[in-house]
């Protein structure tokens, strides 16, 4: 079987700002990969390219063997129709730094929105599934609460449940704990650990080196839009080979 994610020489610019300068990496099925690096290193941008929230300028990304954002036919590359791109995205979960829960919907409505509006699941089935997912992230008691009345940690757990509702084959986490008060970080990481233990393929942009060491199968250090160093988290964190990795780790550890 092919790897879940294959990125080959991915480049991305915003105007003159060349953010990704040739990223190549592979994520195996069931692998948990942590992306670390200083801010502005391009890790979040790379994550957003994987579900085509950002268009890449060159290179290619495949998820589960499918080219992302484009279709290849007879040696030519065609841009996907909006609906086709949306279908691709629905199979890739994404969790944001600022949660981005829908504030006009209750926790349960947030979780069921995708099932009902994208997958066409009927409301009662979606609610049964939604309640299960909220129970799984420890929020069975908060079904009818609006996001404004949940703590940051609870909101992020709802956001994870919302992504899981789409039965994704890959989960992307964009600094999921960076906007949280320190005492709330643990509850979100626990949910992510549980998810990793079920064999979900995950790419996590994070500053939580403890989580990376404990849960991740691989760790990638990015800086200046390139992969500087990658390997087993223990190896990279304990014995960084590159000077840039050493200087970054000395600041965050």
């Amino acid at each position: 079987m092919t790897n879940m994610v294959i990125a080959e020489n991915v480049h991305k610019s915003f105007g003159n700002n060349h953010v990704l300068r040739g990223i190549s990496l592979e994520v195996a099925r069931g692998e948990v990969m942590c992306l670390v690096g200083p801010s502005g290193s391009g890790k979040s941008t790379f994550l957003r390219c994987i579900n085509h929230l950002e268009k890449i300028n060159s290179g290619r990304i495949t998820v589960d063997g499918t080219l992302i954002g484009y279709r290849e036919s007879a040696g030519k590359i065609y841009e996907l129709k909006a609906r086709e791109a949306a279908t691709q995205r629905s199979g890739i979960g994404m969790v944001f730094q600022k949660f981005n829960l829908f504030p006009h919907m209750t926790a349960l409505q947030n979780v069921t929105a995708g099932m009902i509006r994208v997958q066409g699941v009927n409301v009662s089935d979606a609610e049964i599934e939604g309640k299960k997912l909220l129970a799984r992230v420890g929020l069975a008691e908060k079904l009818d609460h609006y996001p404004a009345h949940l703590s940051g940690g609870q909101q992020q757990r709802v956001a994870i449940a919302r992504s899981l509702a789409m039965k994704p084959k890959l989960m992307l986490f964009d600094e999921p704990t960076s906007a949280l008060d320190p005492e709330l970080v643990g509850e979100v990481l626990d949910v992510m650990k549980e998810l990793a233990s079920t064999g979900m393929t995950m790419i996590v942009v994070t500053h939580e080196m403890g989580f990376a060491r404990e849960v991740a199968d691989s760790l990638v250090f990015m800086d200046g839009g390139v992969v500087v160093e990658s390997g087993k988290p223990g190896d990279v964190l304990s014995n960084p080979r590159e000077e840039r990795t050493k200087s970054f780790l000395s600041k965050v550890l």
Binding site: A86, R89, M94, F96, F102, G114, V118
Partner: peptide, 12 residues
């Protein structure tokens, strides 16, 4: 971020 989250869920 709202539009982004909805897009990421696969909403048109």
């Amino acid at each position: 971020g709202q539009e982004e989250a909805a897009t990421a869920l696969g909403m048109s």
